[in-house]
Design a protein around this nucleic acid. Structure first.
Lengths: 197, 197
DNA sequence: GTTTTAACTGAACGTGCGTTCATATCAAAC
DNA sequence: GTTTGATATGAACGCACGTTCAGTTAAAAC
């Protein structure tokens, strides 16, 4: 085994994933060629195949890694938020905005490129997304049971809240009129009122 | 001038636009070839160029026609809604859901394929989208002035409400658990409460 | 200093792309 | 029945695609 240290593989691999992420988000999966990705990294197209079996798997792994990171981050945050439904909902709201704003390319791809996934890869990403949505639905159901929230249909409210929060990514730009924490507060006000008892 | 009536052009033209709409929505603009569109219509690829100068213009005109239809439908609806901010907001909310659910392919394309537009075409679509958003922002500002709404930032609330409403398209399916008018009412409840004074 | 082998090159494979255009078709116009 | 021209064909253009692979490079191992 030669060159286990000093090897380029632990440098080139992440560089390929970063370049693919950026280019897929900018131009779309179908519009980006393996040669473009390779060019961004500074290697020939053939070299990419030391790091991914094919273009489809490269896309899938970017999406799966993003969803894994989202679920891991939520598990860590949820542990800090306690059990009170109102506190958990505020924690979910603020964390969703912050996490998604920090990863615009990943979020864009995770929403836009689902149709370019092979069926089994699509099913896996959908499973992870569902797991994320389920936490919010549970928070809403618990809040209804506790009399804190008036939500006639927790599943629909889950879709509505997540769509509203993810929408921040379409317009927010760092350095704009509002700070991120101001945006968090504006959205939390709307979420809180929308589900209020 | 021969064959001005009985000509195929008034049949083939719409069929091309319908096929392109369907295929762009299913697979994405970049992943659909002119030969695929032609195949769906039952002509050769070259025949498409009697109806569009190029693939890019075909996409742009689908998006522009959709936005024109949206603005025209809003103008007609708004005229019926009167001047009361609460009534106008309810009208906007229900109409947005209904109009968008009836046109899933157009909506999908209008959101996902913006990055495939040439800069001048992108600017035009953005202009039309802005005009649509402006109506909602005006409703919110009028409601705040009248004391009906408590909305600290009408621009952000506009983004939030539209993202939430458009999100219906990602999950609603006709014949499912909820009727469209039930969905309208669930969303209207959330919108009403979120902006309530 | 020789051997080993991970990492990468560069050319090639077959395929499909958007677009053009000379030619064919055929219903309407006269 | 002849002319006209809108409509469509089908072949061709040059180019780029995803992927493969025999060969080259060079750092680590001994």
């Amino acid at each position: 085994m030669a060159r286990t240290q000093g090897s380029h593989s632990d440098i080139t691999g992440p560089r390929i994933r970063r370049a693919a992420l950026r280019l897929f988000a900018r131009h779309g999966f179908a519009a980006v060629s393996m040669r473009q990705i390779a060019g961004e990294v500074g290697v020939q197209a053939g070299a990419l195949y030391n790091y991914t079996p094919d273009k489809q798997t490269l896309l899938f792994e970017l999406m799966r890694d993003h969803m894994d990171a989202l679920l891991a981050a939520r598990a860590a945050e949820a542990a800090r938020a306690g059990r009170d439904p109102m506190a958990r909902l505020e924690n979910f709201t603020r964390h969703h905005i912050r996490f998604h704003i920090e990863r615009p390319d990943e979020v864009f791809i995770a929403y836009m490129e689902l149709r370019n996934l092979a069926p089994e890869n699509f099913a896996e990403i959908e499973r992870l997304r569902h797991a994320y949505e389920d936490e919010l639905e549970t928070i809403l159901r618990n809040g209804v049971a506790a009399g804190d929230f008036a939500v006639p249909d927790p599943r629909v409210a889950t879709y509505a809240v997540i769509a509203m929060l993810t929408g921040v990514n379409t317009w927010y730009r760092a350095g704009g009129r509002l700070s991120l924490s101001e945006v968090e507060t504006l959205y939390w006000d709307m979420v809180r009122k929308a589900v209020a008892a």
